[in-house]
Design a binder for these strands. Structure first.
Length: 263
DNA sequence: ATGTCAGACAACGTCTGA
């Protein structure tokens, strides 16, 4: 089974590249983040022509997650257990955002997640990020099965090895200890970080900012992660970052992570 | 020097978020 995760930064803007990539990489299941559109406007027909069923959790302009599967989609669940919401500046109520979707495909339980960015240390969005990670932990604890995988854009670099310069990360998020501790607590439930091999530079980064030539200079981060149960991590045959998908005209700022499993 | 994107709104530029 070939599984993958990719923050596409708008599935509509990325559709030609997504279709091209599906045709070349041929994943059985692809988890998407930042689809930036709703279920009604998701290009289900176009990916359907390539044999993929879809499960979508999106509300429009921001965020949004989905799963594409050519081995079936069942038991779809949108949102986390006790998922916190976020209050934008001046808003009186928290709004729950579409950042997590679970589904069972080919006997494996998948969760595609887009962890809040956090913006900067001390910002309300940072507290939201930590609260959201607690809800993710609760959800994993409730859902964990023998064949389970949590994958997506975590907006956290697990170690300093996963960042070109931990001191240069804007706002200090993505590398702070509370975020890394929250991630460790999720791993401690029984998940393993499937670290992909790099295609270049020996640094399996998955994200490079669009600005300032960060990609050609390889100033990136490994923030798109695959957390697999023991049964699945023991079945990993290969794992890599498809760095080529970040090249050329009109890429996402993230590259896909692909994992091949002997199941 | 946050140097680039994407989407929404009401344009034909400006804002927000990443």
């Amino acid at each position: 089974m070939r599984i993958a995760t990719w923050n596409v930064n708008s599935v509509v803007a990325r559709l030609p590249r997504l279709l091209d990539w599906l045709g070349r990489a041929e994943p059985d299941v692809l988890c998407l983040q930042e689809i930036k559109t709703g279920e009604d406007t998701f290009p289900s027909d176009q990916v359907g022509e390539l044999g993929y069923e879809t499960a979508v959790h999106g509300t429009g302009r921001w965020n949004g997650v989905a799963l594409l599967s050519r081995i079936g989609v069942g038991d779809v669940r949108r949102g986390l257990v006790d998922e916190p919401g976020y209050s934008p500046d001046g808003a009186m109520f928290d709004v729950t955002e579409p950042r997590a979707i679970g589904a069972t495909c080919g006997g494996v339980r998948f969760w595609s997640v887009y962890v809040p960015n956090g913006r900067e240390l001390g910002h309300p969005h940072y507290d939201y990020k930590l609260d959201w990670l607690k809800a993710l932990q609760s959800t994993v604890a409730a859902e964990l099965t023998e064949r389970f995988v949590l994958l997506g854009d975590f907006n956290i670099a697990p170690t300093d090895e996963d960042v070109w310069d931990a001191g240069a990360v804007h706002g200090g998020t993505h590398v702070s200890q509370p975020e890394r501790d929250a991630l460790a607590r999720i791993r401690e439930l029984g998940l393993t970080d499937v670290v992909p091999r790099a295609m270049k530079y020996d640094t399996p980064y998955t994200y490079w900012d669009y600005r300032a030539g960060m990609f050609p200079k390889n100033m990136g981060m490994r923030i798109d992660l695959v957390y697999a149960s023991a049964a699945l991590s023991g079945a990993v045959r290969d794992a890599y970052v498809d760095r080529d998908a970040r090249k050329g005209t009109g890429p996402s700022d993230h590259a896909p992570v692909v994992v091949d499993l002997d199941i």
